[in-house]
């Protein structure tokens, strides 16, 4: 007879194991440590100051600067067009549509690079795409755009072109029109399309 007895023993033991197991939430989108390490080494999550400045001058809607410093620091000084997502609020619900989207490139920045890199790493680990960091942060911005070093002749032709571009950028960012810092804090538009997992259709429908 007793298929039921065997079944009972097997099912109850498996059930006990199942009840003890922690219920992890697997996400097929999340990256593990190895994958993250690979991405860090490739370094294509960095946007150079020159690229960013150029995008800002052209008012390129593909880029969205995100200031990850505190609210006080952001209000004292921020780059034109940047929105503020303080680092400690990174995963607040209200910011999710901004940092988890497919519409544009988010560029995180802080004074140096620590906070921005951390923000990038955390969001990337969760599987969010289209986030970048500003190379060298505000410090680098200052030395590159506001006080660019004049290249010497040995630096070659290209360095000279860069220098000219930076002088132009400096003119743009520090000129009469840019003096009014408050008007730069325009509210960032909410990107509409959010990255979504493909849901499975099921049941009998």
């Amino acid at each position: 007879m007793k298929a039921r007895y065997i079944l009972s023993i097997v099912l109850v033991s498996l059930g006990l194991i199942a009840a003890i197991l922690p219920q992890n939430q697997n996400s097929s989108l999340e990256l593990d440590a190895k994958q993250l390490l690979n991405e860090i080494q490739v370094e294509n999550y960095v946007i150079s100051i020159d690229e960013m400045a150029n995008a800002m001058i052209n008012d390129d809607p593909e880029y969205q600067l995100i200031d990850v410093r505190s609210k006080e620091e952001y209000e004292k000084f921020s780059l034109p067009g940047a929105m503020n997502i303080p680092f400690d609020q990174l995963f607040n619900e209200e910011w999710a549509p901004y940092i988890d989207q497919v519409a544009r490139k988010n560029v995180f920045y802080c004074n140096g690079t620590t906070l921005a890199s951390d923000a990038w790493m955390l969001t990337r680990q969760k599987g969010y795409k289209n986030n970048y960091i500003l190379k060298g942060g505000l410090n680098n911005w200052y030395t590159t755009i506001i006080e660019p070093d004049e290249p010497t002749l040995t630096n070659g032709q290209e360095a000279m072109y860069d220098y000219q571009a930076r002088l132009g950028a400096k003119q743009f960012f520090t000129g009469a029109g840019a003096a009014d810092n408050s008007s730069n804090k325009k509210k960032a538009k909410k990107p509409v399309p959010r990255r979504k997992k493909k849901m499975v259709a099921g049941g009998c429908s």
Partner: peptide, 13 residues
């Protein structure tokens, strides 16, 4: 394999 279970009435529909 597919993320969904079995069904029958759906096919009749």
């Amino acid at each position: 394999l597919t993320g969904r279970g079995l069904g029958a009435s759906g096919a009749m529909k």
